[in-house]
Design a protein around this nucleic acid. Structure first.
Lengths: 247, 247
DNA sequence: GAAAATCAGATTGTCGACAATATTGCAATA
DNA sequence: TATTGCAATATTGTCGACAATCTGATTTTC
């Protein structure tokens, strides 16, 4: 047989759709850090029962963007300066590793995709939708992780991406002004096409450090208005006072 | 107020207990790779309803040791040579980073804990229980991640640990003979107490590479008897034929 | 006889209701 | 007045039942 190749069809279970919806709400900042997710209310709004909603929330807890306290509730994670510093430092390490693993895998198709995503970033800077700008930039950076042929690395990076996307969204949401529309990826893309791997790795480190300081400063300012709150992935017991409010 | 500090009390929800039970069964190899988890059967054996069981399984799917295919079932992940190679290479990267971050945090308490865990490893080599040997060794290695003061790193490493523990357990289970009772951690512990960070990092790399080859070879032999099976974290649709059997 | 259609059986996904637990407000008490 | 005890309420955790889907065998059709 000479069949054309088909992608597997999307699985349509309520749980999966709920995950998508919740994740989007969190990563765009529509659900704020520390906010409690009221199961009954959300399930009614989505017109589903609590069972698939709870399962979806379990996934997001394990994914690290929600935090759950038994019999108290499930909350959007808080954002501290330390969290951001951690995300960035780990990202540096993973990026360096990803470049190393991707380096021998760079094909024509890789370069094409690199250009395509770079173009998407430049295109997005023209639009008003800041969320789209963040998405495209992260997708460009994700390329080296996708081509590293390393499922665990990709997994770890996608987890990080969630947080980074959330941080960026919060940041932009706070200052409420369009991001500078200069393209800072020109050099990055160029180095990824070159022959000097170390140089590419070095640039990844330094470039990432760019808006890092600004984000941390932002996080510090956030911490002023939310102090004394703490929660982990199900071990602690400190409760929140934050009222929940959707839309 | 001059209150004494208290740790939060442990949360007891069925879901959490189920997670513990399932995880142990998987990591010790009592549930074999590829095996299907029948919800009804397990829920009856544990005397719980399917709701908390399913939520627990969702967590483990996201944790990466189970894989779910909608309307088909949830399975223990397969173990391929590539998986093991990935786990080890990523572990090297994370170890190096962990040592870097832990290095300035080394206190007397750190050294004491280091010795304690090292002692536990040596103690375990005397026992027959191989699972315990694996556990203690991984706990010794986990120290640098716990002291790195880096929640994301610790999280990533714990995810890895699950897989490593599973791999080791399968390996030992297969050859069914006690592990060599020589202590290979002497040098590692010594370097962690020293002043040459680079040397410690280098040793971590090389030492880890030790039993790596053996594990990969083992995985290759495993792949003979289970070919053509594939599944991802909920995107694919290929189904298994593996019958499920508990105990 | 082979391919397609159909039909039971089993298993997963979802639902609504109930049980367990936490929170809040108020009264009681020192 | 501050603290403790106790309803009343709200929310999470769990249960049993039903609906949707898959699997495999059987029947039907060509």
């Amino acid at each position: 047989m000479n069949d054309a190749e088909f992608d597997p069809i999307i699985d349509t279970t309520r749980r999966a759709e709920i995950v998508t919806l919740l994740k989007r709400a969190i990563l765009t900042g529509r659900l704020e850090p520390g906010q409690k997710l009221n199961e009954l209310r959300i399930s009614e709004q989505m017109r589903v029962s609590r069972a698939p909603l709870r399962e979806a929330m379990r996934e997001l807890v394990q994914e690290g963007i929600l935090t759950s306290i038994p019999y108290a509730g499930t909350f959007v994670i808080e954002v501290t300066a330390k969290d951001i510093e951690e995300a960035y430092s780990l990202n540096q390490v993973l990026d360096e590793f990803a470049i190393e693993r991707t380096w021998p895998n760079r094909t024509e198709q890789f370069y094409a995709e690199l250009d395509r995503r770079h173009h998407a970033v430049k295109q997005a800077t023209l639009e008003i939708d800041t969320t789209r700008q963040i998405e495209t930039a992260l997708q460009l950076h994700g390329l080296i992780h996708e081509w590293a042929d390393h499922a665990l690395l990709l997994d770890a990076w996608q987890r990080l991406t969630s947080r980074l996307q959330m941080y960026f969204a919060l940041h932009q949401r706070a200052r409420n002004e369009p991001v500078p529309s200069v393209d800072v990826h020109e050099e990055y893309v160029h180095l990824l096409k070159g022959t000097d791997m170390k140089a590419a790795q070095r640039h990844a480190r330094e470039h990432i450090a760019l808006d890092f300081e600004e984000l941390v400063a932002f996080a510090r300012s956030l911490e002023q208005r939310s102090i004394g709150r703490k929660a982990s992935t199900g071990r602690n017991r400190t409760k929140y006072k934050n009222p929940d409010q959707d839309n």
